[in-house]
Design a protein around this nucleic acid. Structure first.
Lengths: 167, 167
DNA sequence: ATAAACTTTCAATAATTACTGAAAGTTTAG
DNA sequence: CTAAACTTTCAGTAATTATTGAAAGTTTAT
């Protein structure tokens, strides 16, 4: 496999995996491209490489910046804006985990709390609803906490004691 | 909040969260409904409760059964088929984690392996591609392993030592 | 102030994904 | 074997989501 083929394979695979970490295809592809680039890229260059429109590029770059994954880099003497992504995978994982927790998991926990705290009217179906949503709330809470803790360990968290403990 | 409202809120919230754990809305809603039901439900009952068509119900029940989350329950003397879901949240999490690992994460790891093992031709861009995809591969591998290990602890894994260690 | 260089916005459109419903298929009772 | 009771399939359609491209907006150089 040559460079070009490998590059395309990486961008398309990582792009289609976008859903798994909660972002859309174009967004994931732009990030992938920047992730393996040796220098900051302009909007033109991104459009050209990924064959997507100016509008699409602009909108998705903006979203990536909202997530805190991509940053603008101003090159002295250049009028154009250049973009780079966070290059450290652990830091990237930290950002993604934090954002997903905030945007998706926390709101769900709130709903589960509300639902599981309705008045117990003594009927079996109410009891079941309370019991099951409570269990789900506890699990979601625990997973969210664990995820945030794991990912907040700045250095080598996965290879450290927690991970080794479980081998 | 009364039972009916709480129930609807739970089903719609958990349903829209479907993407987060990698299944579609109808699938998630059917599972939610079964999850808080005190008894096995027939296709009719599911269609009626969720206001979805027979075809949709059938297709999504099948998918839930493929995932191993829902099972058919034959009630003696009844012609209809009845459905129940796994009621234990930990077991549910175990199934979901295992399936997503198999369906999505493992194939990605394979691609990352292929891409990161292309021949180093000495150019900076090839070196960068190799370095970055390797890092991503290692991270994905570690997360996948961790997830599977966590989730394979049948009893109370989250509240046990690993979790406490990190508080 | 003005014009060139560049970015953003957003209505229109395309692509994708989900859903319906009726026909075909299957199973069971008699 | 036949009919009733039930489930599955799938072509057509609807709903949702992503993308385009051109007009409007912004910034900078002169």
């Amino acid at each position: 496999m040559e460079y070009q083929e490998a590059k395309e394979k990486f961008i398309s695979t990582w792009g289609s995996l976008g859903t798994l970490w909660g972002i859309n295809k174009a967004m994931a592809q732009i990030q992938s491209l920047l992730f393996i680039s040796t220098k900051a890229l302009s909007m033109e260059e991104i459009m050209e490489e990924l064959k997507i429109s100016r509008g699409n590029t602009s909108m998705n770059l903006r979203q990536l910046m909202d997530w805190g994954i991509v940053t603008k880099e101003l090159i002295p003497g250049e009028r154009k804006e250049y973009f780079t992504t966070e290059k450290d995978v652990q830091e990237l994982a930290r950002i993604v985990a934090k954002e997903r927790s905030r945007r998706e998991i926390k709101p769900v926990i709130k709903v589960l709390e509300d639902v599981s705290s309705i008045k117990d009217d003594g009927t079996a179906k109410t009891k079941e609803l309370i019991k099951q949503t409570k269990a789900l709330k506890d699990l979601t809470d625990d997973l969210d906490t664990l995820m945030n803790k794991l990912v907040n360990q700045k250095q080598n968290w996965l290879t450290k004691s927690v991970f080794k403990l479980m081998k």
